[in-house]
């Protein structure tokens, strides 16, 4: 949810190693990142601290690797979304999560898999893409389909009243 993004990011792990020259901090052995309701569990997490050239604001990149690495967040409507893959890239300043390598998204029973999935933690929008020969498969559970239809009808109704005013 939105309030997650203003929270501090905490990383717990057994070991830590930092390469001060290249500004990379690595966290090793059952690593857990948490930021509000966002949590990422992985075997290794590397944090690349660098600056956004234009705005000169910090633009850290968190790369989590695991078998699989799992990202979880509680959405505005309270439901849980989880993304798992071999690699999860989290850029807090851009609010984007990019998962690649057997990427799989689970939300309210429905699943989306592909080779690369990007997810915006602010807008809660999901984009799945696949290499040329693989397909993006989306399995929607019945209740999700019903919810989407209900949402569509609601939008049509709002569309009608706004025409009438």
């Amino acid at each position: 949810a939105k309030k997650d993004l203003e929270q501090e990011i905490t990383i717990k792990s057994q070991r830590q190693a930092a390469d001060l020259k290249n500004k990379i901090a690595s966290y090793l052995d059952d690593v857990k990142i948490s930021q509000g309701s966002i949590s990422i569990t992985a075997d290794i997490v590397q944090v690349f601290s660098d600056k956004d050239d234009k705005s000169a604001k910090k633009a850290d990149i968190y790369i989590a690797k695991g078998k699989p690495a799992v990202f979880q967040q509680q959405l505005e409507d309270g439901s849980l979304i989880s993304l798992q893959a071999d690699e999860i890239k989290y850029q807090p300043e851009l609010n984007t999560i990019t998962v690649s390598g057997n990427a799989l998204v689970k939300q309210a029973g429905s699943e989306v898999s592909g080779s690369k999935i990007t997810y915006n933690t602010l807008s809660e929008k999901l984009e799945a893409e696949s290499n040329n020969n693989e397909t993006v498969t989306t399995i929607l559970q019945p209740n999700v389909i019903k919810k989407q239809q209900a949402k569509k009808e609601k939008q049509d109704k709002e569309g009608d009243n706004s025409d009438k005013q």
Binding site: T10, I11, R15, A17, K58
Partner: peptide, 30 residues
Amino acid sequence: GSGLIIDLNTKQMTLTEHVRTIYKENHEQS
């Protein structure tokens, strides 16, 4: 953490026992 080893020449640092690291949110950004 504890078990710090830092080599100023190679600029490598390790904590053999890492407890927790807290990244402060970049306030101007939000």
